[in-house]
């Protein structure tokens, strides 16, 4: 049952989950805003990255840090391929984008299921032990996950708001023709952004694979979160995602404490649905 003593733990989990949700959603939001495409496979990419990390460290004996980096690089390459052969090819063709997304999702999920069989896999911890801050003991695993997530998040914000690439990316999402007329190479910017978005999802997957364990459906769980928080934030919003990510993280940390079993996840999503009914266009404005 809920007691106030659990609050610090809930808040810590909120931070960890929130940052991971945001990190994964950023790539989705980039693609959504820039290419007006819904990448339904984004959650599956997050999942397959975690599996890649696990198998790279298992089969080649690499440390899981190295495995995480290799996995992120592979997924960045996958992002390039997706941009070239999916988003660019089917630009403005909603049906095809959805179909291909579902197909990729199914293929990756099946592959993961075949690879792992019935075993429950976990990426070995990136850090062990715990740190005591004030009166609260926090596992180093959580601190590390949160820390890496936060650094990448700040780096992404810097990229979007302060660099030439970020500026061009915003230009493309706001007016494609206008962007082309400034001499911006739309395909190149799109490709880079896809690669970055997929790599961010990969790193989130690798971290979560240690935090929550691997499963072929972890991508579905994440996909739902991504869609929820991008919708809640509203199209074209990036700062909004930062806030809805934390809200989603909070709901996902709080409900398992007060409600048992799968109902917790359902309750969290029900709240999001209610919020969407109140504000169908999302809570935040355009700034991307």
């Amino acid at each position: 049952m809920f007691s106030i003593n659990l609050m610090p733990n809930i808040l810590i989990n909120t931070c960890v989950l929130g940052v991971m949700y945001i990190l994964t959603s950023l790539g989705f939001a980039f693609i959504f805003n820039m290419l007006s495409s819904i990448n339904l496979a984004h959650g599956a990419l997050y999942m397959i990255a975690a599996y890649a990390c696990y198998y790279i460290s298992m089969l080649f004996g690499a440390s899981n840090w190295v495995a995480m980096i290799i996995s992120a690089v592979i997924l960045a390459a996958v992002g390039l391929v997706l941009e070239r052969f999916m988003f660019r090819l089917f630009f403005n063709d909603f049906d095809k984008i959805i179909m291909v997304g579902v197909a990729i999702m199914t293929i990756l999920q099946t592959a993961a299921t075949i690879a792992s069989g019935t075993k429950t896999l976990v990426i070995t911890s990136y850090a062990t032990g715990s740190t005591i801050i004030g009166k609260i003991s926090i596992s180093n695993e959580k601190l590390l996950t949160f820390g890496i997530g936060l650094v990448l998040l700040l780096a992404s914000l810097y990229l979007v708001n302060r660099t030439a690439l970020g500026r061009q990316m915003q230009a493309v999402s706001q007016d494609r023709l206008g962007a082309a007329l400034q001499g911006i190479n739309i395909n190149k910017v799109s490709a880079l952004i896809c690669a970055i978005g997929c790599a961010l999802a990969a790193i989130a997957g690798c971290l979560m694979g240690a935090y929550q364990g691997l499963s072929s459906t972890m991508g579905d769980t994440m996909n739902l979160r991504i869609l929820m928080l991008v919708m809640l934030a509203g199209a074209g919003s990036m700062n909004g995602i930062l806030i809805t990510g934390i809200v989603m993280g909070f709901l996902d940390s709080l409900f398992p404490v007060i409600i048992q079993g799968n109902a917790a996840s359902a309750a969290a999503i029900a709240i999001v649905v209610v919020l969407l009914l109140i504000k169908p266009k999302g809570f935040f404005g355009h700034e991307m």
């Binding site: 030439a164 500026r167 061009q168 915003q170 230009a171 706001q174 007016d175 023709l177 206008g178 962007a179 007329l181 400034q182 001499g183 911006i184 074209g236 404005g285 355009h286 700034e287 991307m288």
Partner: peptide, 26 residues
């Protein structure tokens, strides 16, 4: 050759300054 298109096609959610910066992209 630079075309200022009909309907302007500015970047509405970016500042005036950033719009100008984008003009100098190349």
């Amino acid at each position: 050759i630079v075309l200022v298109p009909e309907g302007r096609h500015l970047f509405p959610h970016l500042s005036v300054y950033k719009n100008l910066q984008l003009g100098a992209t190349l």
